[in-house]
Design a protein around this nucleic acid. Sequence first.
DNA 1: CCTCACAAAATTGTCGACAATCATACTATC
DNA 2: GATAGTATGATTGTCGACAATTTTGTGAGG
Lengths: 222, 222
Amino acid sequence: MNIPASKFRPVEDRTLRAQVKRQVMDQVLGGHLEPGKKLVETALSSELEVSRAPLREALRELVDQGILVSEPYKGFRVRPVSQRDLTELYSMRTELEKFAFSLAWPKRSDEDLADLDDRYTSLMSIRTNGDQAKAIEREIAFHSWVYDVADHQLLRTHWVRLSQLVRIYMSLHHNVHGFHGVFGQTTTEYRELAKGDCLDAMHAHIEVHMSQGFDSVLTSLK
Amino acid sequence: MNIPASKFRPVEDRTLRAQVKRQVMDQVLGGHLEPGKKLVETALSSELEVSRAPLREALRELVDQGILVSEPYKGFRVRPVSQRDLTELYSMRTELEKFAFSLAWPKRSDEDLADLDDRYTSLMSIRTNGDQAKAIEREIAFHSWVYDVADHQLLRTHWVRLSQLVRIYMSLHHNVHGFHGVFGQTTTEYRELAKGDCLDAMHAHIEVHMSQGFDSVLTSLK
DNA sequence: CCTCACAAAATTGTCGACAATCATACTATC
DNA sequence: GATAGTATGATTGTCGACAATTTTGTGAGG
């Protein structure tokens, strides 16, 4: 399990705002709301059975998380996708992840390496299994490892923001191509290098790894 | 002038939300609201003469911009500052700006170089002059040049987010140490290298430049 | 003096109604 | 027939009031 440390976690989503946020996020990232689709506040609020005030605040939070876009008097829409955005997303990912590895490199403990193996195993087991939402989450979790180890709060928040976009494109990919992952074999090499002792090789591999992922997802856009 | 292309720009701040956002932002970034200070909604709404609905939405946008923080039932506070945050901010800046230069390098046109000189002159003239808010804006504008040339939307939004934090720390610095800039002589060298033809030298200089800025701002925190 | 319980005040969260704006369909005019 | 103007409906923006929660204040008991 992932969080055995304390049996209890603080109750989350205490406000309607937070609950709404989670639900809309799940719908979008689950691929049930197609990119570009308009969200009508009155319809959503009656469907979720909350008033528009917390709904609007929740949607506004999702805007700055990059999941939605909004224009005054025009309302909210699911963030549209484009080839350019995808290109930028992956170039950005590449850069941040290389930076993360630079930071994490001297900090990797045995515990951390075992943790990476856990995430790897967890990811591989689901790939043959077939739960789309879970598969995406584990893919993200696998890549989050280096950011956890890097122990850089600001970098992490920027990765979280990027990862939302990654989720959108991945669910798009899964909807088009079924359940096989976007990274293929390179994931295994990624893990080996991450446990090894050559940072340059890791950096080089990230470029390859990302461009593999990019090409794979790109096919979903045409 | 900066934007001669089209004589008109779209009317901005059409909603109260946008106006509130701008005003609160100015207050915080102008250093008139100290980090950690609590913002009481009822007080703010009566002061700004708007209801709490648009006010709350505006504040929530500022949260995801990194200027404020919020907790359920606890309200909004100006983002607190810490040495760790500052360290992370500058390491992040260093990384993103190096990336930006890599992208911008082959795209630099003669126009762009002239633009850089304009921003440089504009910055230098204000440094001896003494309007704090303007000085900060021009400092940011100078560093934004490379992001403009890089022409990478996603990278730009991340820089915008970072630049908000930079503004906070700079206004803190100005409040403590008066109006001289935080980068000193290195700005001139920065400009020269940015116009030159050695990307590696530019990258190396960014490290120096940033650590200079970091050290300078750091003194405001103790 | 300290701590706990409890009441009161202050503050945030939520609601329903109304105003301002936008999108659509229709008409008049050329 | 095309286009501009106009009325209508749909949608977002704003407001004031009330509910839920936290914070502050007070006093009893040790």
